[in-house]
Design a protein around this nucleic acid. Structure first.
Lengths: 336, 336
DNA sequence: GTATATAACTTAATCGATTAAACAAACGAC
DNA sequence: GTCGTTTGTTTAATCGATTAAGTTATATAC
C-alpha cells in the first residue's frame, strides 16, 4: 500500500513549514496571516498530492474524535435499525461519525462495548441500557463522559435520558381494549427489572384496576434468550383452559411479532376470539390478516432529542435533561 | 471531566519508565524481561488507577486502528441491519470495531462516507456499492485499501466481492412460476445499472425466453426515491387492462413489501389472480394472507465470507477473491 | 581478574497534526 | 536613525503509546 501523503510531505515539497499548511487546511489563513501566494500554492499542492488529513493524529492532538458511540440491543431489530439511521443522519450533519454496537441486552457485552468505545475515545455515548449495567452507567457519569440513555434509564441515577411515557402507553392500550368490551386481558412482557418494562407492566395493572378488572390480571414474562418459543408457549397456556383471555397486549415489537406467529399457528380469530395490541409498529403488523393496533413511539423525535442533548453535553453543558415523550395508539382492526 | 490516566502517569507514580508499563500491558513481560516484582507493581497500579489505554495514540503509532468501515444502502432496512449485525459479531470476535454508514444508494453520500472513513484510518472497508461510484472503488483499489464489495460489484474492476448468484435466483423464481402455470409474468425492479439488478433482470428474461414466453416479458423499473408510490403505480398499470399479468416477481425486499401493500390495497387474489415471488425474506412475507414465496439469500454465509476475505487483505494478502453464492427458493402459497 | 553474557531498565525517536511562542523582514512614524 | 507595528514564517512542544537502541549492574566463564 502506497504511503499516505502527510502534512509534512506537502510542507517539504513546497519548502515551507507544516504550520502554514495546517493553518490553510483549517481555514485560518486570515487569522494567522498566511501570504496570499503561499495559500494558493498550498491549496494546489493539497489537491495535486491528493492529501487526506489523518483524523487519528488530529484526534490525538485535539483530544476529541468527532465520533459518538451508540449501543443498542440489536442492530438487526428494525426498531434499533431505524434509531441508528436517525442517529447517523443527525451526527453526520454535525460532522460526527457513529460507531454502533449490539448488546443483546447482555450486561457483559454492553460493558465490553462501552470500554471498547471509550478506548477509542468517543466523544459521547447514546446507550440503550441493559439490565444490571447500572454500575457501568454510574461510572460513566462519574467520569463525566457525555451520555444519553435511550428507551430506558435507571431511576436513582441522574443521567440524561429520553424515553417514551411507557406507563401511559400501556394504560392507553389497555383502556382502549376495555372500552372495546374486552375484560380478560393478558399481557406478555419480558422478564426484566428495567424501568421501561416495569412501567409498561404498571400501566397495564393500573388500567385493569381502574376498571375493577384486577381479578383478570394475567402477566406472562418471557426471557430474552428464547423469545419466540417462550412467547408461543405462554400464548398457548393463556388462550386455553377455563380462565382463557379474550385480549392480549404485547410489550415490545419482538414480542408482538413472536406473538403473531403463535396466533397464526394456533388459528385464533382476531379480533373476535382475541383482541390484540402490539408495540412499536412493524410492516408485519400491516399484513397480519387483522391489521394490528399498536403503540407507536415517536422515534424520530426521540432520537433527534437524544442527539441534541448529547451534543450539548459534548459542548460542555452540565445540565441534566430528562425527556419523556407521549405514545400514540394506532387503532386498527385487531381489537374490535 | 477528570483527566484520564495515561501510561506516563502510571510510570511516574511507580518511578519507572513508560516502556516497562507498555511492555507489561502488551503481555511482553517475558520477551522484554521485565522484573517479576515490577510486573506485579505495574499490574496493581493499572488496576488501582483505572487505566484505560488510549486507542487513538496506539493507532497513530501502529498505523492500524482495528476498525473496519461498513457502507450499506440503509441500515434501517432489515436486510442491511442483519448484515451489519453479522459483520459486527465477526469483527468483534477478532478485536475489531465497526463504523457504519448509509449511502441511500447515492453516490455522493457514498463518497463522503468513504472519505470520512479513510480519514479515520479504517483498516478496511466492506461496501455495498451504489450506482456510479466505480471511480471511488477504483481509487480505493489503486491505493491498496483492503476492500470487499458486497451484493454488487463492478464487472470490469478486479475487486474482491461476495454476491448472490442473482441470475440464477431470478431464473429459478421465474421457472418455478412458469412451472406452476403462470405465463404473463411481470417483474418490478429498480432502475439501476448495477450488476446485481441487471443480473436479476437477465435471469427473468432468459427464463421467459427459454419457455418461449418472450412476448410476455414486462419489466417495470422504479426509482429509489419514491419506491412505494412508484411500485404501486406500476402494479396498478400491469395488473389491469388487456395485457394484464398473471404473476409478478419483485427484485428486492423493499420492492416486495411495497408491492404487497399495493396488492393488499387493490384486493388482488394471490395466488389465483396473481402469483407472487419476492426477494430476501421479511417477517411481513409470513403474515401476508398468502404467505409469500421468496428468494432467500444465504446472508450469514455471505457476510462471514466477506469479513474473512477482508481480514485476509488486512493481513497483507494480495489475492483477489470472488465469491458467488447460490440462492434458495422458498416455496409457499403465493405462487400456486 | 578480565571478558562476555544476561537481566532489568531507561532513553528518545516516532506516528501526524496542532498551535503557542519565537523570530525576521518590511514598513511607517517622528 | 531609532523604535514600534504589521506581516509572514519557522520552531518546537504536545497529544499518548510503541519500540529500537542504549545503559547499567550483576552473573558466569575461563
Amino acid at each position: 500500500m502506497a504511503k499516505r501523503v502527510s502534512l509534512k510531505d506537502i510542507a517539504d515539497k513546497l519548502g515551507i513549514s507544516t504550520a502554514l499548511v495546517s493553518y490553510v487546511l483549517n481555514g485560518q489563513e486570515k487569522e494567522k496571516r498566511v501570504g496570499a501566494e503561499v495559500v494558493l500554492r498550498i491549496k494546489k499542492a493539497v489537491e495535486e498530492m491528493n492529501y487526506i488529513p489523518n483524523q487519528i493524529a488530529r484526534s490525538l492532538r485535539k483530544g476529541t474524535t468527532n465520533t459518538i458511540g451508540l449501543i443498542v440491543a440489536d442492530i438487526a431489530n428494525p426498531f434499533f435499525g431505524t434509531m441508528a439511521r436517525i442517529v447517523e443522519n443527525e451526527a453526520n450533519r454535525c460532522g460526527y461519525t457513529v460507531v454502533i454496537g449490539s448488546s443483546d441486552e447482555d450486561c457483559k457485552k454492553s460493558s465490553m462495548l462501552i470500554n471498547n468505545f471509550l478506548n477509542r475515545q468517543v466523544d459521547g455515548l447514546i446507550i440503550v441500557p441493559s439490565e444490571g449495567c447500572e454500575n457501568q452507567v454510574k461510572s460513566l457519569i462519574k467520569r463525566g463522559i457525555p451520555l444519553v440513555l435511550f428507551d430506558r434509564y435507571t431511576p436513582d441515577l441522574s443521567s440524561n435520558h429520553v424515553v417514551l411515557d411507557n406507563y401511559l402507553a400501556s394504560f392507553d392500550a389497555i383502556s382502549h381494549l376495555i372500552q372495546q368490551g374486552y375484560k380478560r386481558i393478558g399481557m406478555i412482557a419480558y422478564r426484566s427489572g428495567l424501568i421501561h418494562m416495569k412501567e409498561r407492566v404498571r400501566g397495564y395493572v393500573e388500567a385493569m384496576k381502574d376498571h375493577k378488572l384486577e381479578k383478570y390480571i394475567l402477566i406472562k414474562e418471557v426471557k430474552h434468550e428464547n423469545v419466540k418459543i417462550e412467547t408461543e408457549q405462554a400464548l398457548q397456556e393463556i388462550t386455553h383452559g377455563e380462565k382463557k383471555i379474550d385480549a392480549i397486549f404485547f410489550a415490545t415489537n419482538t414480542l408482538s411479532i413472536s406473538g403473531l406467529y403463535g396466533i397464526q399457528k394456533m388459528g385464533l380469530k382476531v379480533p373476535d376470539e382475541l383482541g390484540v395490541i402490539g408495540f412499536d409498529g412493524a410492516e408485519a403488523f400491516d399484513f397480519f390478516y387483522s391489521p394490528l393496533s399498536y403503540i407507536r413511539q415517536p422515534i424520530d423525535e426521540m432520537v433527534k432529542e437524544s442527539v441534541k442533548i448529547l451534543f450539548d453535553q459534548i459542548k460542555g453543558s452540565i445540565k441534566i435533561t430528562h425527556v419523556k415523550l407521549a405514545p400514540q395508539l394506532i387503532k386498527r382492526q385487531s381489537c374490535g
